[in-house]
Simulated assay, not measured.
Amino acid sequence: MSASGVRRLADRLDGARMRIRALPGGTIAWRVLVTLVGVAIIVLGIILLPLPGPGWLIIFAGLGLLATEYAWASRLLQRTRRYVLAWTRWAARQSLFVQFLIGLAGLLVVGSALWLAWWLVS
């Protein structure tokens, strides 16, 4: 999706949010809807964590959705972004050997998750 397409989608969602909030009880209904969808997205991400793929990305997307309505979710998302950025910068400053060990540890985690998923299914 292009940047202009994303902008149009965001404008439509903002319009829908304003129309729903203008209704009697609309503010509560919108917040309940955002909460249910955000929690469902986070649960889906947690379910997908043991599998190789975008489990964490899905969790952060759900947290981002919750951050549109809740200050605590916004603070948690900002804190998480800072930690990820700090970790990425730290890893980039390390020697090639340490970067290799970090990658190997990541592969071991993914391999263990795959083995565990296979063992649970079998």
Results as ranks from 00 to 15, higher is better:
residue 117 A to F: 09
residue 79 R to H: 10
residue 116 L to D: 07
residue 64 G to Y: 05
residue 37 V to C: 09
residue 16 A to C: 07
residue 21 R to I: 08
residue 40 A to M: 01
residue 52 P to W: 07
residue 9 L to N: 10
residue 115 W to S: 08
residue 64 G to L: 04
residue 43 V to E: 00
residue 21 R to N: 09
residue 26 G to T: 05
residue 35 T to R: 07
residue 97 F to L: 14
residue 67 A to S: 14
residue 22 A to G: 12
residue 116 L to E: 09
residue 73 A to F: 07
residue 7 R to V: 10
residue 83 Y to N: 06
residue 99 Q to R: 12
residue 59 I to S: 06
residue 55 G to M: 03
residue 64 G to F: 06
residue 6 V to L: 10
residue 84 V to R: 14
residue 58 I to V: 03
residue 20 I to Y: 12
residue 14 D to C: 04
residue 58 I to L: 00
residue 90 W to M: 07
residue 90 W to Y: 07
residue 39 V to Q: 05
residue 24 P to K: 07
residue 112 S to C: 11
residue 106 G to Q: 08
residue 110 V to F: 04
residue 31 R to F: 06
residue 53 G to I: 10
residue 69 E to L: 02
residue 88 T to S: 07
residue 17 R to G: 13
residue 14 D to S: 12
residue 102 I to W: 02
residue 51 L to T: 06
residue 66 L to S: 08
residue 101 L to C: 13
residue 26 G to F: 02
residue 14 D to Y: 09
residue 2 S to W: 10
residue 4 S to Y: 04
residue 86 A to M: 06
residue 50 P to W: 01
residue 10 A to H: 07
residue 82 R to K: 13
residue 116 L to N: 12
residue 106 G to D: 03
residue 19 R to L: 13
residue 110 V to R: 14
residue 88 T to Q: 03
residue 108 L to K: 06
residue 106 G to L: 00
residue 1 M to G: 15
residue 34 V to C: 11
residue 27 T to P: 07
residue 4 S to P: 02
residue 53 G to C: 06
residue 85 L to K: 15
residue 16 A to N: 04
residue 14 D to H: 08
residue 32 V to K: 15
residue 121 V to N: 02
residue 92 A to W: 05
residue 64 G to W: 02
residue 40 A to C: 09
residue 64 G to I: 07
residue 97 F to A: 12
residue 103 G to A: 14
residue 43 V to K: 06
residue 89 R to S: 10
residue 122 S to V: 11
residue 66 L to R: 02
residue 106 G to I: 05
residue 31 R to Y: 11
residue 64 G to E: 00
residue 19 R to P: 00
residue 78 Q to I: 05
residue 24 P to F: 02
residue 52 P to R: 13
residue 89 R to V: 12
residue 83 Y to D: 02
residue 92 A to S: 05
residue 76 L to D: 03
residue 65 L to H: 03
residue 114 L to K: 14
residue 56 W to I: 00
residue 53 G to L: 09
residue 69 E to Y: 03
residue 57 L to Y: 03
residue 6 V to P: 02
residue 15 G to P: 01
residue 118 W to L: 07
residue 41 I to T: 10
residue 7 R to M: 10
